[in-house]
Amino acid sequence: MTTPAATVGTIPEDRPVGLWTDALRRMRHSPAALIGGTIVGFFVLIAVFAPFLAPYDPRIGSLAESYLPPNAEHWFGTNVQGQDVFSRIIFGSRLTLGIAVLSVVLGVAVGATLGSVAGYFRGWVDALIMRSVDIMLSIPGLLFAIAVVSWLGRGIIQIAVAIAIVNVPIFARLLRGSLLSLRDADYVVAARSVGVRGPALLLRHMLPNAIGPLIVQATLALATAVVDAAALGFLGLGPPDPRTPEWGMMLSDTYRYLNDAVYLAFFPGVAIVLSVLGFNLLGDGMREALDPRLRR
């Protein structure tokens, strides 16, 4: 290597721009991502600082004060047991976000592993995994979650696991699809031709490029997890302690009194809708930012 070719063209001397940095920069310019991120951030803050924000203990009510409409002391009113709805919603965000995050983390971990194995090894392993996935996907998600909760028993962890199990086939199928298309991508073939094999090929060349859609799907899955958790709570499959401030349980506690006290259903409903909207907007924004076809 004695005679270097003439250098062609230059590239600006500033800091190299990685793909994630670039995606983040694009997200800052996307209204959907900004609004979604703000809403999600808002709920995260509430969940973290719940003990400082809530004026009352969410589990303790005084029957003397039951059934109060919104007023200066109880901003969102009180329920039948006289518990402060405002405090319950604030503490409920912890449960909801916790279940959502836990279920998605579990779902991604298991689903991505199965998807990688199927997409990388193919053959009968792939056939086995994907047919199981097909069977799981043929069962309606909520019904499946109900079945799992009644099998595992009621409880917060059980709910998260149930929702995670519902999510597993979605992530498995998504990642497998990305990996299959990446197997024949020129840069993967090129890596093979310079001698890269096995786990290195999967971990360095394929997974990093398949992860974008997975992240988007995970964000959107957070939104469905919130709804599913609320639905399980509403259907009476929430945590066994009836005092637990879970948004779905709060809804189901109050629907009998809907004619007299709309506000009881209104506030948990708004909380659910807002958090779902936040995660959805954030997911859409991320999709735009991470989509390679939309890159400048």
């Binding site: 290597m1 270097p4 070719a5 003439a6 250098t7 062609v8 063209g9 230059t10 590239i11 001397e13 190299p16 721009v17 990685g18 793909l19 670039d22 890159r295």
Partner: peptide, 28 residues
């Protein structure tokens, strides 16, 4: 570094990602 020099890419290409290059530079 020598490889990068041999094919005529700028020296600071080492820390760059492919999307920062033109088609001709990428082919190099």
């Amino acid at each position: 570094e020598r490889l990068i020099e041999t094919v005529g890419l700028p020296r600071n290409a080492v820390n760059r990602y492919p999307h920062e290059f033109s088609g001709g530079q990428r082919q190099r």
